[in-house]
Design a protein around this nucleic acid. Structure first.
Length: 427
RNA sequence: UCCGCGAUAGCUCAAUGGUGGAGCAUUCGGCUGUUAACCGAAGGGUUGCAGGUUCGAGCCCUGCUCGCGGAGCCA
C-alpha cells in the first residue's frame, strides 16, 4: 500500500489503484496513483518504457483502475516525499469523463455524486476520522466496564413524545416507528447489567433544515445505574477527553489534510467548566442577547455561551418544562430538571444531552400523563420503577456533530458516507 | 411551517433591457520534472418551468418546481 512505501525504497513494487490525476510534459508522464491509503506520483519517461506503456499512460482517464510497477525513490519534488520510477502499467478497467474533476464543484453537485465524491482526499480523511472516533467511543466504554446493548430500531411509540417520527406499518400490530433514541431501552439494560451503552442509528422526521441536522444519524448512549447527575457529568467529561485526545494522537495526518486548527481541540481535558442554566442566561444578558428566561437555548445562544470558554462547557439544571418527561427534577427546586447539555466550542453547539432519570414510580406516571403519552406503551418502562428502582443517569452523544466539530466542517452532511436530509435520500 | 438567497455550457461562474462569454472538463496539436502543470486550436446553450410587461427579456413582474442558508425542533 502507498502508506507503507517508506519501507520499500529502491525496491521494485507493484501497486493497484486508481488514477487520481495525471500531468504531462511531452516525453514525461506523471501519473498520480490513488489506492485508498495515499497518493503516489508515478513517472514514465519516453525511452525508458515501451511505446505501448507510454501511449497507455497518455490515454488514461481520471479514476481508471490500473496496476503500476516501478522502483520506489525518495523524491523531495513529489508530494509525500516518494515517487515511483515506473516502467510497468496495466489497465484493469477504463474510466472516461469522470464527473468530479480536480476543479471546484458545488455541494449539490457533489452530493448527487456522493458515491464518487467519497474517493477524494478530504472525504477519505473525514471517513477515517469518523472510524477512529467510533472505535475510540467503543474502546472507552468497553474499558470502563460497560456492556454494549443494541436497542430495537422499530419501536411501538415515541421515546420522548415530542419529535415527529418516521412511521411504518407493522403487520397486524398497527403502526411502528423508527427509533429516535435507544435510551429507554438502555435504562432497562442498566438495571440488568449496571453499565450499558447503545450505539446505533436514530431517526427524526423533523423538517429541520440546518447544518446540524440529519434525518438519520448515529448516537451513542451510555446509561449507568446508581449514578446521579454529577456522576453523569464526570463520565461525560472523561469520555470527551478520551475520544478527542485519541483522534488528535492517531489522526494527525487526516486533520492536516482537513486544515483543522487543533488548538482548541487540545484543550479538551477534564475538568470541563460546569455552569447552571441560570448562569448561562446571565452570560446571554451580559452579551445583550435577547432571551426569554425559561426557554431552551437556541443555536446562536449556544454559540455565545460556548465562546466564553476555551473548551466544551456543560450547562446543567435546565427548566424542567423544556426538557423530556423522563428527566428527574431537582429535589431542591422542582422547576429545574437534573439535565445537562454539553456545548462544543466554535459554534458546533450541543453534542451531548443527558440527565438523571426519574426513578420514582408515582412521579414518572404523572409525567407520562402530563405529557399525554400513551400509558400502555410505557408500562414496561414503568416496570423498571416498580421492581427495584434505583437512581440512574445517562447521556447521548451525536456522532455526526462530534465528527463535524473534530474535523472543523461547516455541515454535518459530510460526516456520514451517505447523508439523509429532508430533501435528499439518494444516492 | 415561516424568513432570506439562488437556478446561465458537463462543472464553477460572468454578461448596463440591445449579437449569451471565461476558466476547468472533453477532442486534437506542442513541451524530458510536472505539482488543481503550462501553451495553441476545436466542439459544446430551448439561460429551471409556465405566463406577463416591452420594438426587444438571461436581466423587469406574477405563479410554480427544485436547491441552499437560517428559525422552530433536536443530537
Amino acid at each position: 500500500m502507498i502508506k507503507d512505501l517508506s519501507q520499500f525504497v529502491n525496491q521494485e513494487v507493484t501497486l493497484k489503484g486508481w488514477l487520481y490525476n495525471k500531468r504531462s510534459s511531452g516525453k514525461v508522464k506523471f501519473v498520480i496513483l490513488r489506492d485508498g491509503t495515499g497518493l503516489l506520483q508515478c513517472v514514465y519517461f519516453k525511452g525508458n518504457v515501451t511505446d505501448e506503456v507510454f501511449e497507455l499512460a497518455d490515454s488514461l482517464g481520471q479514476e481508471s483502475a490500473i496496476e503500476v510497477t516501478g522502483k520506489v525513490k525518495v523524491e523531495p519534488r513529489a508530494s509525500g516525499g516518494f515517487e515511483l520510477d515506473a516502467y510497468g502499467l496495466k489497465l484493469i478497467s477504463e474510466s472516461h469523463n469522470y464527473p468530479i474533476t480536480p476543479k471546484e464543484h458545488g455541494v449539490e453537485y457533489l452530493m448527487d455524486h456522493r458515491h464518487l465524491w467519497l474517493r477524494s482526499t478530504k472525504q477519505t480523511a473525514i471517513l477515517r476520522i469518523r472510524h477512529r472516533l467510533v472505535k475510540a467511543i467503543r474502546d472507552f466504554f468497553d474499558n470502563c466496564g460497560f456492556t454494549l446493548m443494541d436497542p430495537p430500531i422499530l419501536t411501538p411509540a415515541a421515546c420522548e413524545g415530542t419529535s415527529t417520527l418516521f412511521e411504518t406499518n407493522y403487520f397486524d400490530l398497527g403502526k411502528a416507528y423508527l427509533t429516535q433514541s435507544g435510551q429507554l431501552y438502555a435504562e432497562a439494560g442498566a438495571m440488568a447489567l449496571g453499565k450499558v451503552y447503545t450505539f446505533g442509528p436514530t431517526f427524526r422526521a423533523e423538517k429541520s433544515k440546518t447544518r446540524r441536522h440529519l434525518t438519520e444519524f448515529w448516537m451513542v448512549e451510555p446509561e449507568v445505574a446508581f449514578a446521579d447527575l454529577n456522576n453523569d457529568m464526570d463520565l461525560a467529561e472523561e469520555f470527551l477527553e478520551y475520544i478527542v485526545q485519541t483522534v488528535l494522537k492517531d489522526k494527525e495526518e487526516e486533520l492536516k489534510i482537513l486544515e483543522r486548527d487543533t488548538t482548541l481541540l487540545k484543550n479538551v481535558k477534564k475538568p470541563l467548566p460546569r455552569i447552571s442554566y441560570d448562569e448561562a442566561v446571565d452570560i446571554l444578558m451580559k452579551n445583550q442577547i435577547e432571551f426569554e428566561y425559561g426557554n431552551d437555548l437556541g443555536g446562536t445562544d449556544e454559540t455565545v455561551i460556548s465562546n466564553q470558554f476555551d473548551r466544551p462547557v456543560m450547562v446543567h439544571h435546565y427548566p424542567a418544562e423544556v426538557k423530556a418527561f423522563y428527566m428527574k427534577r431537582d429535589p431542591q427546586n422542582d422547576k429545574f430538571a437534573l439535565a445537562v447539555d454539553v456545548l462544543a466550542p466554535e459554534g458546533y453547539g450541543e453534542i451531548i444531552g443527558g440527565s438523571q432519570r426519574e426513578d420514582n414510580y408515582e412521579t414518572l406516571l404523572s409525567r407520562i400523563k402530563e405529557h399525554n403519552l400513551p400509558q400502555e406503551a410505557f408500562e414496561w418502562y414503568l416496570d423498571l420503577r416498580r421492581y427495584g428502582s434505583v437512581p440512574h443517569s445517562g447521556f447521548g452523544l451525536g456522532l455526526e456533530r462530534t465528527v463535524a466539530w473534530v474535523c472543523g466542517l461547516d455541515h454535518v452532511r459530510e460526516t456520514i458516507p451517505f447523508p439523509r436530509l429532508i430533501y435528499r435520500n439518494t444516492p
